[in-house]
Design a protein around this nucleic acid. Structure first.
Lengths: 171, 171
DNA sequence: TTGGAATGTCAACAAGGCTGACTTAATATT
DNA sequence: AATATTAAGTCAGCCTTGTTGACATTCCAA
């Protein structure tokens, strides 16, 4: 901390000396960037008196149509009571459809209605626009590093889910 | 979206074609990574019945000792009423000291007490440890890209504040 | 001296987390 | 067949942390 020098190259590139201040900078970058990350959808949501929780539900149902409630609350990392409150309003408002499972009738499979897809698109358009601008500003190599660090920052269970979501999608 | 090809090199590296799915991946990475980012301090805070808001206040007072309340709420992006509730408990619990300004006696300058510094250190040690691991796993080039993208994701006002925090610190 | 800024406080409210207890239905297990 | 477990939903109550609005105090500056 009193020695901000970074002796790299010594012992290979994997061993790098990181000062507390360098790490603090990363922490603050995450804090401020996350604010920007949520700012655009938050503005849209505020107008229609929905919250971030609704956005998250719409996002993941859109990404995995037919997902079960149990599945969804594992991804979101909330209790079923908390998710249920959000889900109920989305179903009542006709944005989400809940279908009884065919194989296992205890399960409910969740789908976006046409209206739900429209809102999801509106929200994610705003969020993607910011992401696209950031990616373009930073350049392709930066994007690759960005994703590497974010992935390394996840808990292993979250990382597993993150990868599971990719499978079956064209990326 | 139907054409996941990425024609890069055409028109320089700044013009890159980004599919919706590529951007969605980045969005989900931010979501899951932020969960990891806050997980360790959250666990510590839960034990002592404080919340994330207390952590944020401690973090920024630690980084800019003597900062005013107005300053702090601009950085945190919350109302003074919201900040005040958190600040009051921190002062009552002897973690933060509020000194009346010498030049302008309306202002209160905020400092961490010894106990406050101890908690801040405990929280940020946990958060820095995860950050350090992530940085080491991803490597120095990835870290540079990570910071570039995060910075590009901030609102301009947030980016201004982010840089202002660096000045006067040895990074 | 008066206007405005900085701060603090009270009250009320909402979103969105949580726990715990309980029901219903369906599936699994023994 | 009886029993246990699982998925989902619901109700009640609690907490944190955000919001508005109204108002008091203090003090600087024009």
């Amino acid at each position: 901390m009193n020695d901000p020098r970074v002796p790299h190259g010594q012992g290979g590139e994997t061993l790098l000396f990181l000062t507390d201040d360098q790490l603090r900078q990363g922490i603050e970058a995450m804090f401020f960037a996350y604010r920007g990350f949520t700012a655009d959808p938050d503005r849209i949501l505020a107008d229609i008196s929905y919250g971030r929780a609704h956005h998250r539900a719409l996002h993941f149902i859109n990404g995995a149509p037919g997902t079960t409630v149990n599945n969804l609350l594992r991804i979101l990392g909330v209790t079923k009571q908390s998710l249920n409150r959000v889900l109920r309003t989305l179903i009542e408002d006709g944005l989400v459809e809940s279908r009884v499972g065919r194989a296992d009738k205890r399960e409910r499979h969740l789908f976006l209605t046409e209206e739900g897809r429209a809102l999801e698109r509106r929200l994610s358009d705003a969020q993607r626009a910011r992401m696209r601008d950031a990616y373009r500003t930073a350049g392709p190599e930066a994007v690759s590093g960005f994703k590497k660090v974010l992935e390394a920052m996840m808990d292993s269970e979250l990382r597993r889910q993150y990868h599971a979501l990719r499978e079956g999608r064209n990326d």
